[in-house]
Simulated assay, not measured.
Amino acid sequence: MKFGKRLKQQIEESLPAWRDKFLSYKELKKLVRLISSAESCVEYGKADVEAEFVHLLNNEIDKFNVFFMEQEEDFIIRHKELQQRIKRVIETWGPNGTKPSEAEYKDEMAKIRKDIVNFHGEMVLLVNYSNINYTGLAKILKKYDKRTGGLLRLPFIQKVLQQPFFITDLVSKLVKECENIIDEVFPEQREAITVAGKGIFRNTVAALLSMQEIRRGSSTYGHFSLPPMDLPDSDLIHSFQLNSPIPIV
């Protein structure tokens, strides 16, 4: 699948509020065509179009960083809140709580199950957001160098590797901690968790499949390829794929 189609698919499978945060690949591709076209260079001025291309690239990186850091900060807060909610429910309505109530305990834990799976899914989607946008930048820069004879790719990618949106260690750590919470608090309820989280489940699995796919050998494989996935080898996701009532096609 060509990258443009893959990106379009990823945008469609992402959360609605995220869809305008992805790489403006079509616009960048159009500028590359203008720069490499002799007629366009005469009409528009090659230097002006090149400047517009670099300006758009920098704006895109700023867009990625702002969005990624906002989501990352939100995830840190939500992770802490989930831990506090679980502790409060156990200490209040659990068997040894201050107001033991099986009905209240089950009701509150059901709400937490749904929230924690949605939270886990959103974090996986954010890692995929980082991956797909980095891949798009690498591809458009390769296309630029190839068609124009320029040497923009190497210095620009070196800059990208230092950007907040590319560094997903913290989010990956939160994903693992989230899975540990599920294993500790809901060890025998994987199927129930799957059903509770099915609203975001399909997008999460699609994101994981995409992350695996874009790391396979391709025309951009090599020095500029993404590193191995730093997400944990999630038994939770494997169980989702096996147990989910939603077909993966």
Rank of each mutant, 00 (worst) to 15 (best):
F22Q: 11
Y134V: 12
N59P: 13
I157H: 01
S40W: 09
T92H: 12
A17S: 15
S24I: 15
L154Q: 10
S239L: 04
Y134S: 07
L152S: 06
V195A: 09
F68A: 07
V185N: 10
A110V: 00
D20E: 05
G149Y: 08
S225E: 13
I181G: 13
Q189K: 12
K176R: 03
G217M: 14
A206P: 05
S40H: 11
I246F: 04
L141G: 01
R190G: 02
S130P: 15
H120Q: 08
S36R: 05
E188C: 01
M69N: 10
K30V: 15
G222D: 12
R78D: 08
Q241F: 05
E184M: 08
D145K: 08
I76H: 12
N243V: 01
Y44V: 03
T194P: 06
I112C: 01
T204S: 07
V175Q: 13
I90A: 02
R190Q: 03
I248A: 00
E177G: 12
M1N: 08
F67T: 07
K29I: 05
S101V: 15
I193A: 05
W18D: 15
L28W: 13
I132S: 09
Y221M: 13
C41L: 01
L154C: 06
E39C: 02
Y44K: 09
A51G: 14
A192H: 11
Y221T: 12
E179Q: 09
A110C: 01
I182N: 10
P247W: 14
F64W: 14
F22I: 06
L174V: 14
K21L: 10
D230K: 10
I76L: 05
L242H: 09
V127E: 07
Q189C: 08
P164K: 01
N203A: 00
V195I: 13
I132F: 03
D145R: 14
A192N: 10
P227W: 02
Q10A: 02
L141H: 00
E72P: 04
I116E: 05
K142I: 11
E108K: 04
L226E: 01
Q10P: 01
Q10D: 09
M211F: 00
N65L: 11
D233M: 07
A110N: 04
F240G: 14
A110G: 00
A103C: 02
E102C: 02
N180L: 04
R19F: 09
K99Y: 12
Q158A: 06
K8E: 10
V54L: 12
S36K: 01
P228H: 00
